[in-house]
């Protein structure tokens, strides 16, 4: 017989997180909730006298399957937002009613039957399972081996992307760049004065004008750059004897 406290704990950590499947918005949260459900199920197996299955459940589901799900989530982008508005007419309420009805129906049937419980639960130790697997069910094991191989090959085939064109060499990349009229050489480096780490200071051309292309676009968008002229002006300012002292405040000055 099963400890009731243990049962209620298991019920709680399986049913409640699994509701995330219906109500949570972020897929990663759902995946993590299911991991919890799987752990709860593993506990249930151990409680029911199947320690081997419990371990396998942890290894296979929480360790492999759910991690695979998370990997795939990462591949397709975690920000795949889901619009929760229903698009198929009547799908939502018919689906809910059917699913709930199925659940209620099953529960009602199960509660109506009474099955005498065996006094002594069987031992689900690995050696017992192993004898079963490799004696009575050995043919099924072989067939499952085929199935796994086929599935692995199938996954390879499905996700394989054949290279349609030969890999472009550096020479070809460079030729294309010249052909479309882009910069034939590298863009100029920022920070000609090297007075500080200068990534936010544009380079100056021979006439003394700042070259906008020499600093990162990201810095520009964040408004974290300094205008060349103002910086030069500060440098040339004779009233500032120690220019290196001003570096920390140059950002505010540059505005």
């Amino acid at each position: 017989m099963v400890n009731p406290v243990l049962f209620w704990i298991i019920a709680a950590i399986t049913v409640i997180p699994s509701l995330a499947l219906l109500f949570a918005r972020k897929t990663v949260y759902i995946a993590m909730s299911i991991v919890l459900v799987m752990v709860g199920l593993a506990a249930a197996y151990v409680t029911l006298g199947a320690p081997f299955l419990g371990v396998v459940q942890i290894v296979v589901y929480t360790g492999a399957v759910m991690m695979l799900f998370v990997f795939v989530l990462m591949l397709v982008g975690v920000d795949q937002r889901e619009d929760l508005r229903e698009t198929i007419r009547n799908q939502r309420w018919i689906g809910l009613v059917t699913a709930l009805g199925l659940g209620a129906f099953l529960v009602s049937i199960v509660t109506r039957v009474s099955i005498p419980v065996a006094e002594e639960g069987v031992s689900g130790e690995p050696d017992v399972i192993a004898f079963m697997l490799f004696e009575r069910y050995v043919l099924v094991m072989e067939v499952l081996g085929f199935l796994l191989i086929t599935a692995a090959v199938g996954a390879l085939v499905l996700t394989h992307v054949p290279r349609l064109k030969p890999r472009r060499t550096q020479l070809e990349v460079q030729r294309d760049r010249v052909r479309v009229g882009a910069d034939p050489v590298n863009k100029p480096m920022p920070g000609v004065y090297a007075r500080h780490n200068a990534l936010d200071v544009p380079a100056l051309d021979p006439e003394g004008k700042p070259i906008e292309a020499s600093i990162s676009r990201v810095l520009e968008m964040r408004d974290q750059t300094q205008e060349g002229e103002s910086f030069r002006a500060t440098l040339d300012d004779p009233t500032r004897p120690d220019s290196s002292y001003r570096d920390s405040t140059s950002k505010e000055d540059g505005r």
Partner: peptide, 24 residues
Amino acid sequence: QNGQVRSYALTMLVGLVIVIFVVV
């Protein structure tokens, strides 16, 4: 055939419920 996978799934589930009901 409206092409909606979930709609097909719903049909299957409804059929399943009916089958279980009849069997019981």
